[in-house]
């Protein structure tokens, strides 16, 4: 990581809206959102179900184009970026924890984490040891050879987190990464994320668990597609 970029925003949303075409016309799920995520931020997003949190995270992880507005990643406007460019940025700089994990059921926990490197052409480290390390950091070293479909919900969630952080990405985007964990496991996972954050990584996550808010440096709420920064 470049020290000059410490103050530079990793990600910038400028007047971003996102609508979906439904039966009764276009429905706006995200409305005129301005957001700047800086290097080293640990952002938590809360909000009621259906308020657009996952949609926001999809936009932030460059999986979904905004209907209007602009997304900037590391100072570069992505309005005109090709799909291949976006894919490359995701592979190189983003770690994504999906709400439904997105694990490959037949493959082992370790293989799932290693899958992170499948399309990462120029990873300098050793994919295998990075993956084992990531699994260890979420406390799953012992089940690394078990097929993902046989893991418990909480274990699956932790494998998903391990996969997101294995390549040490610039920005980790996590959709309810502790949603299926008991309190103790949730704290373990939060410690992993906090540790990453302390090491300089930028994180943004959605959670319903307000007990975890103290881990974050910023707290945003999303209500009806409108984003609001909470002051603590």
């Amino acid at each position: 990581m470049d020290t000059d970029s410490l103050t530079e925003p990793v990600l910038n949303l400028h007047r971003v809206s996102r609508s979906f075409t439904g039966e009764s016309g276009d429905v706006y799920v995200l409305k005129d959102i301005n957001l700047s995520i800086n290097q080293g931020d640990f952002v938590m997003v809360t909000g009621p179900s259906g308020s657009g949190k996952s949609t926001l995270l999809h936009v932030l992880s460059l999986l979904l184009h905004p209907s209007t507005g602009e997304v900037e990643f590391l100072g570069r406007s992505l309005s005109k970026a090709s799909e291949a460019d976006l894919g490359r940025i995701r592979a190189q700089h983003l770690g994504i924890v999906f709400q439904h994990y997105g694990l490959l059921g037949r493959r082992s926990a370790l293989e799932n984490v290693k899958f992170r490197f499948r399309y990462l052409a120029d990873f300098l480290g050793d994919a295998n040891s990075s993956s084992v390390e990531a699994l260890r950091s979420v406390g799953l070293e012992g089940v690394k050879d078990r097929p993902a479909r046989l893991l418990s919900g909480g274990e699956k969630q932790r494998v998903a987190i391990a996969r997101a952080v294995a390549a040490k990405p610039q920005l980790v985007v996590a959709d309810e990464p502790t949603g299926n964990l008991d309190h103790t496991s949730a704290l373990v996972v939060m410690e992993v994320l906090a540790e990453l954050n302390r090491a300089g990584y930028t994180l943004i996550m959605v959670t319903h668990n307000t007990d975890l808010l103290h881990f974050a440096s910023r707290h945003l709420t999303l209500t009806n597609g409108m984003l609001q920064e909470m002051q603590n």
Partner: peptide, 16 residues
């Protein structure tokens, strides 16, 4: 579908 989505999210191109 999930696998395809995951691959795309991880940087696979549509051609891949």
């Amino acid at each position: 579908i999930t696998e395809i989505g995951l691959r795309l999210a991880l940087g696979a191109t549509r051609r891949q």
